[in-house]
């Protein structure tokens, strides 16, 4: 029995299921070893992994829509930038202040807006992103407007500063792994199951005793905190922040990563962020056609792996099933 084709293919399937995530992790390792500018690309990818992992909790697990996650990245980013560069706070303390501010904002924003559903929620969150962007532009005394804030120190505690590219990348990798681990634990907790349940049917979830509104709000705040952390990491790595860096393009990029990687899957954000981060670099030699090739690649991925690269094993399974007749038919 152990040698039957079924067993072998099921083992292969299990391996295949983890292959995309392992490949993405492999790219991170390669970047750490290589140390070239790929460090920057992968570094951004890891920061986006955290941002998208947060979005995934709200969108993938809880089935809601938010076009305004850039607002929370902005709060984290500007809190860290202003408090460290202007007021000389240590980065960790500034990051915590950013997280607290983000959580409060997400609560205040989410409490009224999460009554809305579908398109209305999407529009409301979109507005939040635009408002925070405008605040970053207009509140010049604090944000310095379009000129941005520079001179943001590197990450560090006390006298230890993460200055080298490799050290920063390793730190980002650790943060990304922790974020994904937290996301996995959350998904497999009572809370996570409740989120997936309410995304399937709010009424069915309510009938099981789930407090739908409270859970949606909690998921929103958690995803906002993820965004805040990614914003903080971003400003400390780049050392500069301006409103253009927290605009709508951030949301579009994150959505692409989420869907390409696999919405609702734990490792999807990592896969999506690394693939979407590296894709333009791998086709940079196409010069003027870079955007065209990028678009074509995206379309191909979404056609052939509609559930995202993380569920590539499902695609292969389906292919095998159409080739070989099904062995058992469910009653």
């Amino acid at each position: 029995m152990t040698n039957s084709p079924a067993t072998i293919s099921s083992k292969l399937m299990a391996a295949l299921r983890h292959a995309p995530a392992i490949a993405a992790a492999g790219m991170v390792a390669y970047a750490i070893a290589d140390g070239g500018y790929i460090v920057t690309v992968v570094g951004f990818g890891l920061i986006y992994t955290i941002f998208v992992a947060g979005l995934n909790i709200f969108m993938g697990y809880a089935g809601q829509t938010s076009f305004g996650q850039n607002a929370f990245a902005a709060i984290g980013a500007y809190a860290s930038a202003v408090l460290t560069a202007t007021y000389g706070w240590p980065p960790l303390l500034a990051a915590l202040a950013g997280i607290v501010a983000t959580a409060i904002c997400a609560f205040v924003i989410g409490y009224p807006t999460l009554r809305l559903k579908g398109h209305y929620l999407a529009m409301a969150t979109l507005a939040i992103g635009l408002i925070i962007y405008e605040v970053a532009v207009q509140w010049q005394s604090v944000t310095n407007g379009y000129m941005g804030i520079s001179g943001i120190p590197a990450l560090g505690i006390g006298h230890y500063e993460l200055l080298s590219d490799r050290a920063q990348l390793i730190f980002l990798a650790i943060m990304a792994v922790l974020s994904l681990a937290a996301s996995w634990l959350l998904r497999h907790s009572r809370f996570g199951r409740a989120l997936v349940a309410l995304s399937g049917s709010e009424d069915a979830a309510r009938a099981l005793g789930i407090n739908v509104r409270q859970y949606k709000l909690t998921a929103f705040i958690i995803s906002a905190i993820y965004a805040s952390i990614s914003g903080t990491l971003f400003v400390h790595i780049v050392g500069f922040i301006s409103p253009e860096m927290i605009g709508m393009n951030m949301v579009i990029l994150a959505f692409t990563m989420l869907y390409v990687g696999g919405i609702g899957t734990t490792t999807g954000p990592l896969i999506g962020a690394i693939v979407i981060g590296l894709l333009p670099e791998s086709i940079r030699s196409f010069k003027d056609y870079q955007d065209l090739v990028y678009g074509a690649a995206l379309i191909l991925i979404l056609i052939y792996a509609p559930g995202g690269i993380a569920s590539l094993d499902q695609v292969v399974k389906k292919l095998l099933r159409t080739k070989a007749p099904a062995k058992e038919v469910a009653p």
Binding site: G35, G36, G148, V238, S242
Partner: peptide, 29 residues
Amino acid sequence: TVYRKMISSDKVNIFISGCVSAGNFAAAQ
């Protein structure tokens, strides 16, 4: 990203860059 590519992959000797201020600021360090 492109600044760092040109620094570490292309090993350019000098930059003569365009007018995207925020981009030049962000890459300056």
